[in-house]
């Protein structure tokens, strides 16, 4: 299966959504609504769950199932109010010492005028900062599309799991193709170049585990996929819950510090020198 097929799987209309996963893998679910500041963004689903006896706080992008639901849920593309709802859940989890599970499945943050007017960039930045220092374990599961900053706003944690046919990318293959070749038609080629599949992400050391979906993908076997994901989440949860909070935070910081993909050319001398003349 090439990268473009994986992209198609990750976007499949029958692919189980965050709500499906909660329904299939969790026993109790109390959904929280709203940003406590005037509105509820249905593209984010959040609440408290129990899963095989473990209590968790869950937040996810929710695409919705069926045409009407998909429209109402805005295809899982949050505005600032959606990110604020997730942030509310993160803070609640911290207060109650509940581990957080993030279910990532979005084409990206919603590119709308109103979203921008209400500070889309600021909302994403706030969530990233909150997740970086949240004093409770955070497990991220990439379950479908992982589109750019909108995905990352619910995607920073102690362990990142990825469903076999999920994707994670800085830009959609169509977007990449139209930037590179001014032609959205070369998306298949772009999908390959972006290295957005679970296998690529494991090779790049950006994720901790790949969750198998079984033949035909999660849309063919939603129950099996949900149970596989639950198994992996519980495994990681047990390991992370054993850590005291300070070492958990240190470990999280170290996990992201390690994501260094640069090449250093040593200077003439160590430290700083008066070299403003070198500036372009």
């Amino acid at each position: 299966m090439d990268a473009w097929n994986v992209v198609a799987f990750s976007r499949h209309p029958q692919r189980p959504t965050a709500a499906d996963f909660i329904e299939l893998a969790c026993d109790y679910f109390f959904e929280i609504k709203g940003d406590r500041s005037g509105a509820d963004d249905p593209s984010v689903i959040a609440g408290m769950v129990t899963m095989c006896g473990e209590r968790l706080a869950v937040a996810g992008h929710e695409k919705g199932s069926g045409a009407t639901e998909r429209k109402r849920r805005n295809m899982g593309m949050p505005g600032p109010r959606g990110f604020a709802k997730a942030l509310r859940l993160f803070k609640l989890a911290e207060k109650l010492s509940l581990p957080v599970l993030c279910l990532v499945d979005t084409p990206g943050a919603y590119p709308g005028v109103e979203a921008e007017e209400h500070g889309q960039a600021f909302a994403i930045s706030r969530n990233l900062a909150a997740l970086a220092s949240l004093k409770t374990p955070v497990i991220v599961a990439l379950i479908g599309e992982g589109g750019s900053g909108g995905a990352l706003a619910l995607g920073v944690g102690d362990a990142v799991l990825m469903m076999e046919n999920a994707t994670f990318s800085v830009i959609s293959p169509e977007g990449c193709s139209s930037i590179l070749w001014r032609d959205a038609g070369k998306a298949r080629e772009a999908a390959e170049m972006l290295r957005l599949t679970s296998r690529d992400m494991l090779e790049l050391d950006l994720i901790d585990a790949v969750v198998p979906e079984g033949p035909g993908g999660a849309h063919a076997q939603p129950v099996a996929a949900a149970l596989n994901l639950r198994k992996s989440v519980l495994e990681h949860l047990r390991a992370l819950s054993a850590l005291p909070i300070p070492s958990l935070l240190e470990r999280r910081k170290e996990r992201y510090r390690r994501l260094a993909f640069f090449h250093e050319v040593p200077g003439d001398e160590a430290g700083l020198s008066v070299s403003a003349g070198r500036l372009p």
């Binding site: 990233l128 970086a132 990318s169 800085v170 957005l196 950006l206 992201y256 993909f261």
Partner: peptide, 19 residues
Amino acid sequence: VQEGAPALMQMARVMFALE
């Protein structure tokens, strides 16, 4: 865009530095 997900992850990485 040319650095894909590894560059995207820097969004999180810089927040740890700011912390």
